[in-house]
Design a binder for these strands. Structure first.
Length: 576
RNA sequence: GGGCACGUAGCUUAGCUCGGACUAAAGCGUCGGACUUCUAAUCCGAAUACCGUGGGUUCGAAUCCCACCGUGCUCGCCA
């Protein structure tokens, strides 16, 4: 529908311009404002006016006359309005929209294998809200790329070879549980983080000699990892896996799940990191200063150290090996990163390019952290709101809403306790996700409970409700009829069909630009179109062809909304 | 100080990548309406904006360029 329509417009307009002897490199195709019959329009006449030595509306008329739509399927006609050339849809366009079902928005396979790396938080403790944008945006980006026809793998890159984890391992072995506070929650990462925090405190308060001793032990852990010492891997691995196990449980609540947890030690153990270091040393940009190997990168004010003076690798060194592995295994790699990694991502890209990789296949999605009103969140300091707490509170508040609405509920479908629990969970968690995924990730967010858990506003329940309404209508219908689009004559029906038809275009654009929030914006447009239809066009109380066509339209809307929500990772309730 | 990002109604945002029907679109909040009709977590209406500021490019700028102001991030042999 929309994509084919756009292709037809591109073809016939370019042909028309060629025919009239105008350049056809920029077609000026855009979406007309609301209320126009046209699906797409062109403002090409403005640019050609001076060359043609005639006012834009005349040029528009000339072009419109030259456009030939005899061979098009979806483009029905060409009209002008002032300087604009408008392309209107055929009945086939609406017919296809009416026939949309389970595969709404799924684009043709690209054949590309894409790896989406997201979250990748150091396994030091519970996932907090400051970083919660990462799994939510990352999961949506992965879903989006899947809908856009790619084979997607979701990876969590585990920083298990850094100083932080060495310190954690040391603290875990050094301190006894009896000297720790009770865990905030009965789960491994909450139990484990106490050791990490205790270890961090130790470094702030212990005397110099004790700190030196501890430093030496941490250093020996790092050296052990670097040397490939099996016992050291096991010690660190025990801590990493325990914490990670709990974090996984938390992330699964969103739900954000992963195909693979890729540990950075893997690239130390298999020799890839050493191999990268050898090649880096050969580069013209490589310098050996102050006993450390560095890269003097163009456009970066600071050198990038890739081998410490004690011969150990750094995070970025291992990440280079990691990314070369990604390039071997996948056609494209997308990484969702906090804004504090922007510089590092730039250096990584530049260095990968120097190593002979095609970095066009690498893309980053950058988001800014969620802060508290009085500062940032930190696992080490224990400041911050745990994602678990936010989700719990969201469900509690959603449940209150459900229960308070039970009395004045019109529909007599008698929600039982299981329904109430389901709706509370779908709406509560959906609201948290939707709130985050619907905003541009580069904008800063300050966390406030009431704002994060606002069920009104332009929030998840608003669009979820549309899905529930669709399900309510279709509930007693045995088989959805195919429906005849010619029966749908009201402007509200047509407008809804247009929105449904547009969904694939939204997926296409959002996937290309890696901007899932466009899908969230779309769900609101779709919801508005549906609500207008719902108000004006009764379905079950009419009969014959009209009823069949409207039922088909409701089914098309339902599946479109369900899949749009699926991209966002928000559940689509069958009742609310 | 250098680099990057962000700045749109009282508040929260969309539109900005790729300038064009923008006389700027929504939600919340405020005010006023609509449930004997498929779920009112809905809908309809009113009021609210020098699109951070100043220049520039252009037939045309919220959108592109420059400067400035404000906010955040960043500039480790941390990750």
């Amino acid at each position: 529908m929309f994509i084919a329509f756009r292709e037809e417009v591109t073809t016939v307009l370019a042909d028309a311009l060629d025919d009239r002897g105008y350049p056809s490199d920029d077609l000026g195709i855009e979406r007309p404002p609301e209320g126009f019959d046209a699906v797409l329009a062109s403002s090409i006449s403005f640019g050609l006016a001076s060359e043609a030595e005639r006012p834009p509306p005349q040029v528009a008329g000339e072009i419109a006359d030259a456009v030939d739509v005899t061979d098009t399927t979806y483009v029905d006609g060409v009209t002008t309005q002032g300087p604009y050339v408008n392309f209107t849809p055929s009945e086939a366009y609406f017919e296809d929209a009416l026939a949309v079902r389970e595969d709404a928005g799924e684009l043709a396979a690209t054949g590309d294998a894409v790896v989406v790396e997201h979250t990748s938080a150091n396994p030091t403790g519970p996932v907090h809200v400051g970083r919660a944008r990462n799994p939510i945006i990352g999961d949506a980006v992965a879903n989006l790329l899947e809908y856009a026809g790619n084979d997607v793998e979701r990876h969590y890159y585990v920083n298990d070879a850094g100083r932080q984890m060495a310190l954690f391992t040391w603290a875990y072995e050094r301190f006894d549980e009896t000297e720790l506070p009770d865990p905030e929650r009965d789960r491994t990462e909450y139990e484990m983080v106490r050791y990490y925090r205790r270890g961090s405190e130790f470094f702030e308060s212990a005397d110099e000699r004790a700190v030196e001793t501890a430093e030496a032990e941490i250093e020996s852990i790092l050296q052990g990892l670097e040397a490939g010492d099996e016992a050291t891997y096991e010690r660190v691995g025990a801590v990493v896996d325990a914490v990670l196990g709990g974090m996984k449980t938390c992330l699964a609540r969103l739900p954000a799940t992963f195909d693979e947890f890729v540990k950075e030690t893997r690239f130390m153990r298999n020799g890839d990191t050493d191999e990268v270091i050898d090649r880096l040393k050969q580069l013209d940009e490589a310098v050996y200063e102050e006993d450390a190997w560095q890269l003097d990168l163009d456009g970066f004010e600071k050198n990038l150290v890739f081998l410490r003076s004690d011969d150990t690798s750094l995070y970025t060194t291992r990440d280079l090996a990691h990314h070369e592995w990604k390039f071997e295994e996948y056609d494209r790699a997308v990484t969702v990163l906090g804004e504090d990694h922007t510089l590092q991502a730039g250096q990584l890209r530049e260095t990968l390019e120097l190593l002979g990789n095609d970095t066009d296949q690498l893309a980053s999605v950058i988001y800014s952290y969620v802060d508290l009103p009085d500062g940032g969140m930190s696992t080490r300091a224990g400041t911050g709101v745990d994602l678990d707490d936010l989700l719990d509170e969201a469900i509690v508040r959603a449940r209150d809403e459900v229960e308070s609405r039970l009395d004045d509920r019109d529909r007599d479908d008698d929600l039982d306790e299981a329904d109430i629990e389901r709706i509370a969970r779908q709406v509560g968690i959906g609201a948290v996700r939707y709130d985050i995924v619907s905003k541009q990730p580069t904008k800063a967010i300050t966390f406030e409970w009431d704002r994060a858990l606002d069920f009104e506003a332009q929030s998840a329940p608003y669009v979820q409700y549309v899905h529930a309404r669709c399900c309510g209508i279709l509930d007693g219908v045995d088989a959805v009829p195919a429906g005849d689009v010619s029966a749908l004559t009201e402007p509200e029906s047509r407008e809804l069909l247009r929105e449904i038809a547009r969904f694939e275009g939204v997926i296409d654009a959002a996937a290309t630009e890696l901007r899932p929030h466009q899908v969230a914006t779309y769900t609101r447009d779709l919801a508005e179109a549906f609500n207008a239809f719902y108000r004006e066009c009764p379905v079950l109380s009419v009969e014959g062809e009209l009823r069949d066509a409207r039922l088909a339209l409701v089914a098309a809307a339902r599946h479109t909304m369900a899949n749009a929500l699926d991209v966002l990772g928000v559940e689509a309730p069958v009742s609310m």
